[in-house]
Design a protein around this nucleic acid. Structure first.
Length: 156
DNA sequence: GCCAACGTTGGC
DNA sequence: GCCAACGTTGGC
């Protein structure tokens, strides 16, 4: 079992949007970064747990936990000319971008704001907290994941 | 709105 | 293969 963090701007897709999906499940389309793609395509497994992070929010915050319910498959929005994330180099025959399905597991009672997280010693090495970190899909260590659940007063 | 950090592109 | 220019991310 692996742990991850995925970012989304709440203005474009928030945890409440996920909560309102049929079966609280969505496909994580639109990732156009190779490192993030590789994590999804090569390493994410069904049952893995994902921290849901609101970037560009006030404050930015971890807001809940989701679960990988379908392993990677081609991101079909990449060959849709009308899609914002259209990539002419990606085709159904030779897909360049991949996605997974995630299902909401738990929305935190209160968001864990970034300023609060910055004070937590056990999270000091977390990729998320690194200055300039832009990875939108990133691995999380188990001890970091556990610490965050504790901070959120949540059990799964 | 500002700007630092980053990833990608393309000329050479 | 190098690296400058550029566009984007994302905290503040």
């Amino acid at each position: 079992m692996n742990y991850w963090l995925m970012k989304s701007e709440p203005g474009s897709y928030s945890i409440d949007d996920l909560a309102q999906e049929k079966k609280k499940t969505t496909f994580w389309s639109g990732v156009r970064n190779y490192q993030a793609r590789n994590f999804m395509r090569d390493d994410m497994q069904k049952g893995d747990l994902v921290l849901f992070y609101h970037s560009n929010a006030c404050p930015p915050a971890i807001v809940g936990v989701a679960e990988v319910v379908k392993e990677s498959y081609p991101d079909f929005t990449s060959w849709d000319e009308d899609d914002h994330h259209f990539d002419p180099k990606s085709t159904p025959e030779n897909p360049r971008w991949f996605m997974v399905d995630i299902k909401l597991k738990k929305k935190f009672p209160e968001p864990l704001g970034r300023p609060e997280l910055a004070d937590v010693k056990s999270l000091a090495d977390m990729e998320l907290m690194r200055k300039g970190s832009r990875l939108s899909v990133q691995p999380v260590k188990k001890k970091e994941f556990d610490a965050i659940l504790n901070l959120a007063s949540v059990t799964l």
